[in-house]
Design a binder for these strands. Structure first.
Lengths: 218, 218
DNA sequence: GTCAACGATTTTGTATACAATACATTCGAG
DNA sequence: CTCGAATGTATTGTATACAAAATCGTTGAC
C-alpha cells in the first residue's frame, strides 16, 4: 500500500455515500469503519474530516459525523448553480476560446452523435462530459474551471438517473450546436444563455422526476 | 476549553495565513505548531487538513503541508468568479426578491451613505458587506448563497487592500443604486450585469494595483 | 573536486492509550 | 406509573508511542 490510508478511505467512503450505500443521516461510526477498512481510528477520522469539508457529511461536535444527502430542494439549488456556473464558463469562453479548442469541442460533439447512433449511452455520457469539461477549460479561468468541475462531480450521481429519458439526447445535441455557434461567433451572452438553458433542463427533468415520485406529498 | 482544539487551531492558522504571517510556500511544521498552540500533533493535523481542503494550503504526501497563497493570476481569476457568482445572485434575486428584502437592501445602502458622510471607512466596509450578503440571500438559492459567502470570505483579505482608493466609494454607491433599481423592476439581466460590473471593478483595481507594484517585472 | 551511496536524523503517517463528554439504563422519589 | 437523577457505558477528542519514509550529512570511490 503506497498510498495514504486516509485518502483511500475518504475516496471509498465518498463512493459509498454516492451510491447510497449509507442512507441519509446515518452515523459514520469511527470504530466500525476502522474495523471495516482494517486500520485504526486515526486515518478514518482524517477521511471523515474530508467528507465534512466537502459537504457530503456534517459533524456535530462530540456526537459524531453523519451522512448528509442533499434533499430535493438543495439538489435543485445545486443544479441551478451548475447552470449558472456553466453559463459563466460559456460567457468567458466566447471571448477567449481558441480555434484549437473549438475544433476539440466539435470533435467531442461528433463523438456524441456517434454514440447516439450506436445506441451507446455510456459513450454518450462520457463524450457529453468531455464537451462540458472542454468548455470549463475554454473559459480561460482555471479557478472557475476547478469550481465547475467540483460541482459537476458532486452532481454526477444524480445526473445519471435522468439521462435515459426518452428524446432527450437529440434535443441535447441541438442545444450543443447552439452553444457551439455562439462560441464560434464570440457571442458571450448567447453562449451563456444557451449553456444555462441546456443545463437547467436537467434541473427541470429532475424536478419533474421528483414530482412524479411524490405526487401530492407535503 | 469547551471548543475543539482542532477547530480553534484551524481558525487561528487561517487568520495567520490571511494576515500573511506565514509567507507563501512556508512549511507548516506539525511539531512547531503543536508547541505553539500547546497541544499535541493530532489536533494540529486535523486543522491542517481543513486548510488543505479549503485550498489555503496544499499537502504533499510524506512531505508536509505548505502555505499556498494565490498568485496574481489566480487572484484575478477568483475576482472574476466572484463577479460571476454575484451576477448569478442578482439574476435570481431579481425574479424572487421580496419587498421586505428590498427594504433591507435600501437600509443597508443608506447606512453605506451615512458611513461615507461620516468618513467611517470601517462602517462603510461593514455595511457594504451586508448589502452584498443580502443579495446572496435574496437569490433564494441557499446553496448559491453559501458558495458566494465562501468565496467572498476567501477574498476578504485582498479586498481590504484596495478599498481606500480615491473616489471609489461614491461611484460604488451609484452602482448600488443601479443594482437596486434593477432588482426593484425585476429585470434579471440588468441586475446581473450591474452586479457583475460592480464586482469586476474590484478585480480591475486589483489588476492596476499589481501593475503598479511590479512595473516591468518578469 | 565531484558525485554517489550509505547511515543518521527528522518528519510524516498510523496505532494505541488516555481523557472527557454524551448517551442509556436503572433506580428511586413523588 | 411517570419523571428525574445518578451511575455505567459508549464514543468522541487528544496525547503519546511506534513505523515508515524522506531529507540531510558524511564518507568514500573515481
Amino acid at each position: 500500500m503506497d498510498i495514504r490510508h486516509a485518502d483511500r478511505i475518504a475516496d471509498a467512503l465518498e463512493e459509498l455515500i454516492f451510491t447510497a450505500e449509507f442512507e441519509d443521516n446515518a452515523r459514520l461510526d469511527e470504530v466500525r469503519l476502522a474495523e471495516r477498512f482494517a486500520v485504526s481510528r486515526t486515518p478514518v477520522r482524517e477521511a471523515l474530516q474530508r467528507l465534512v469539508a466537502s459537504g457530503i457529511a456534517i459533524q456535530i461536535p462530540r456526537r459524531g459525523v453523519f451522512v448528509r444527502q442533499p434533499g430535493p430542494v438543495e439538489l435543485l439549488e445545486m443544479f441551478e448553480v451548475m447552470a449558472e456556473l456553466e453559463a459563466s464558463c460559456g460567457r468567458l469562453a466566447a471571448l477567449r476560446i481558441s480555434t484549437a479548442d473549438i475544433a476539440r469541442l466539435e470533435t467531442a460533439n461528433e463523438n456524441c452523435l456517434s454514440a447516439i447512433d450506436a445506441g451507446d449511452s455510456d459513450a454518450y455520457y462520457r463524450e457529453n462530459e468531455a464537451f462540458h469539461h472542454l468548455i470549463y477549460k475554454a473559459s480561460g479561468n482555471g479557478f472557475l474551471e476547478q469550481e465547475a468541475l467540483r460541482l459537476h462531480r458532486r452532481l454526477k450521481p444524480y445526473r445519471r438517473l435522468q439521462l435515459r429519458l426518452h428524446g432527450r439526447m437529440s434535443q441535447s445535441m441541438q442545444e450543443h450546436q447552439r452553444i457551439l455557434s455562439a462560441l464560434r461567433d464570440g457571442k458571450s451572452d448567447r453562449a451563456a444563455t444557451a449553456l444555462r438553458d441546456h443545463v437547467a433542463v436537467q434541473g427541470e427533468k429532475f424536478h419533474r422526476l421528483l414530482a412524479n415520485l411524490k405526487p401530492a406529498a407535503e
